[in-house]
Amino acid sequence: MIRQLFLLLLFFFTIAKITAQDSKQPILSTASKQVSTFTIDAPQLQTTKKIWMYLPENYATSKNKFSVIYMHDAQNLFDAKTSYSGEWNVDEKLDSLKAQVIVVGIEHGNEKRMDELTPFKNEKYGGGKADNYLEFIVKTLKPHIDNNYRTKTKKKNTIIMGSSLGGLTSYYAILKYPTVFGKAGVFSPSFWFTKDIYTLTENSKKIKPKIYFLCGDTESDDMVSDVNKMEYLLNSNRCYCLNLNEKKIIKGGQHNEKLWRDGFVKAISWLGY
């Protein structure tokens, strides 16, 4: 069922995009004044990427350094004008908390989104180019952010977070780059896309990053069981004396921005920044 849901989301994304373009009444931007954007070359992806930056309100007046959250699908994080299915309200939530953290949102590649956010190829749907995408983050984007902003650069201060395919690739990121990303927010992960992600978990050395899992119990027939399976494999590869996992299964939660928006603050509060 989740496969059909995934295809429906792609369909609605396309329709919503066309509708927004044809609409006579423009959608106003809802991004806070703490949000800005820039573009950067992404040689690993042979393209340029638009990046959304959230800076704390006191960034300009302080000399502090800040932890960084790297998030996927930036179009849906801050602004109703660019979101096709509702936004996460990341900026408003962080503003209200006066959170001392920087958020770096990476726009997805539209028709290339599936390629960028999947670590292994699916026999039916293709994909499998997350290695290039993560290499862009680690070797191009993160050095740029660290060189141009006051950031705490250690892994304990570097979080990666996303939902659906973004949840899948966020989880993959901590396996592939455990010395870069010390924490991950894994929302409604599309573990169904590839069984190889389970095999990689089983074969990885001790997995030390902190992980916050979130999903709804009405997302699909296999979402909860997939997350439970991954949690079991993960705990088999951890030191049980450490509290490195948190899992929230939301009753009635659906595969949408509302679920992820409502779970954002609890996730970053537990992960710590």
Rank of each mutant, 00 (worst) to 15 (best):
F136V: 01
K210E: 03
A267M: 09
D91K: 05
S23D: 11
D41H: 14
N64K: 14
L141E: 07
I268V: 09
G105F: 00
F213G: 03
Q25N: 15
G127L: 09
T61F: 15
A16K: 13
D196I: 03
I15D: 05
D91W: 01
D22R: 12
I197Y: 03
H255F: 07
K24Q: 13
E219C: 09
F78T: 04
K65W: 01
D217F: 09
T158Q: 04
P209K: 00
E57S: 11
K258C: 02
N256P: 06
N64C: 13
R150C: 07
F78Q: 03
I137P: 05
P43M: 08
D131M: 10
N157V: 05
K183G: 03
S62I: 08
F187C: 07
V104C: 01
A184W: 12
Y198P: 13
L5K: 14
D79H: 05
Q100C: 04
G272V: 05
F213K: 05
A267H: 03
I145L: 12
C241N: 15
H144C: 06
D131N: 15
K81G: 05
Y198F: 15
T194R: 08
K142S: 07
R150V: 03
T158L: 08
Y70Q: 06
N235T: 12
K17G: 13
Y54N: 07
M230K: 10
I174W: 04
F191Q: 03
V265K: 04
E111D: 15
A74K: 00
T30I: 02
L28N: 13
K24R: 12
F6H: 10
S29H: 13
F12L: 15
Y59T: 09
A31P: 02
P56M: 10
T82L: 00
